[in-house]
C-alpha cells in the first residue's frame, strides 16, 4: 500500500528544485511590493486629509476581510474586463503584494504607534520637517517592534505562493501538480513540496529571530 519510489524522487528533483527557485522569487518579489506599498498605506492612514486616509483605511479593511485566492482571481480574470490584461506573474505579484501590504501596514502602524510621544515632540522642537521626522526618527524606532510581525508575514507570503498556481504561475505547487498528472503519482511530489517548504520556513524563522536581536542591539535599543 505504501509505495514510495526513490528513483522517481531523483527523477523529479531537478524540476522541483527549479520551481523552488521560482517560489522563492515570487515570495521575495511579492514581499518587496508589500513592504513598500504597506508603508504607503500606513502613512496614508495617518495623514490629516480625510480624502486620503478614509478610502485607504476602507481599502485595507476590505483586503484583509476577503480571501487571497479571490483577490488573485479578481486581478487575473476580472481585470481584462476593465482593460487590464496581465500575464500570470504580474497579476499574481500585484494580488499577493496588495494582500500582504494590507497586513504589513497594520504591523507598521503598530510599530509607529509604539514610538513614544516625546520622540515626536523632541523632533518638533528641533524643527525637523515631518518627512525628516518620519525618516530619521520615527521609522527607525518603529522597525524593531514591527520586525517580529514583518518576519511572520515573510514566512506567510512564502507559504501562500502555492495559491498563485491557480492562475498558472509555475511555482512549486503548480509544478508538483503537473508532475502528478503526467505520471499518475502524487505521493512523492506532494511530500517533497511539503519537505521543501519546511526546510525553508524553519531556518528562515530562526534567522529572523536572531536578526531581530541584532538589529535592536545595533540601534542601541534594548
Amino acid at each position: 500500500m505504501f509505495d514510495w519510489r526513490w528513483e522517481f524522487v531523483w527523477q523529479i528533483t531537478p524540476r522541483l528544485v527549479e520551481a523552488t527557485g521560482r517560489t522563492i522569487l515570487a515570495a521575495l518579489l511579492g514581499y518587496g511590493i508589500a513592504m513598500v506599498l504597506g508603508l504607503f498605506f500606513a502613512l496614508a492612514q495617518r495623514t490629516r486629509f480625510k480624502l486620503v486616509n478614509k478610502p485607504i483605511r476602507e481599502f485595507v479593511e476590505f483586503i484583509r476581510s476577503t480571501p487571497l485566492i479571490l483577490q488573485i482571481f479578481f486581478v487575473f480574470y476580472v481585470g481584462p474586463q476593465f482593460g487590464v490584461m496581465l500575464s500570470p506573474w504580474p497579476a499574481g505579484m500585484i494580488a499577493i503584494g496588495l494582500h500582504y501590504a494590507s497586513y504589513l501596514s497594520e504591523v507598521y502602524r503598530g510599530g509607529i504607534d509604539s514610538v513614544p510621544k516625546g520622540q515626536w515632540e523632541a523632533a518638533t522642537s528641533l524643527s525637523l520637517s515631518p518627512t525628516r521626522t518620519y525618516y530619521r526618527v520615527i521609522i527607525p524606532q518603529a522597525i524593531p517592534p514591527a520586525f517580529a510581525g514583518m518576519g511572520n508575514y515573510l514566512v506567510g507570503i512564502f507559504k501562500d505562493t502555492p495559491m498563485l498556481s491557480v492562475i498558472g504561475v509555475a511555482e512549486l505547487m503548480h509544478t508538483a501538480n503537473s508532475i502528478g498528472s503526467e505520471h499518475y503519482r502524487f505521493l512523492e511530489p506532494y511530500t517533497m513540496v511539503g519537505v521543501i517548504f519546511l526546510l525553508i520556513s524553519l531556518p528562515t524563522a530562526a534567522v529572523l529571530r536572531k536578526a531581530e536581536v541584532k538589529i535592536r542591539r545595533k540601534m542601541g535599543l534594548r
Partner: peptide, 24 residues
C-alpha cells in the same frame, strides 16, 4: 529640554546633537 529627555535612542549622543543642525 524635557522631563524625560527624549533623546533619539537609535542615535549616539553625538548623532543626537548633529541631526538637526545638519538636516535643518
Amino acid at each position: 529640554c524635557f522631563q524625560h529627555f527624549n533623546l533619539f535612542p537609535h542615535m549616539t549622543a553625538l548623532e543626537n546633537c548633529i541631526e538637526a543642525p545638519v538636516q535643518v
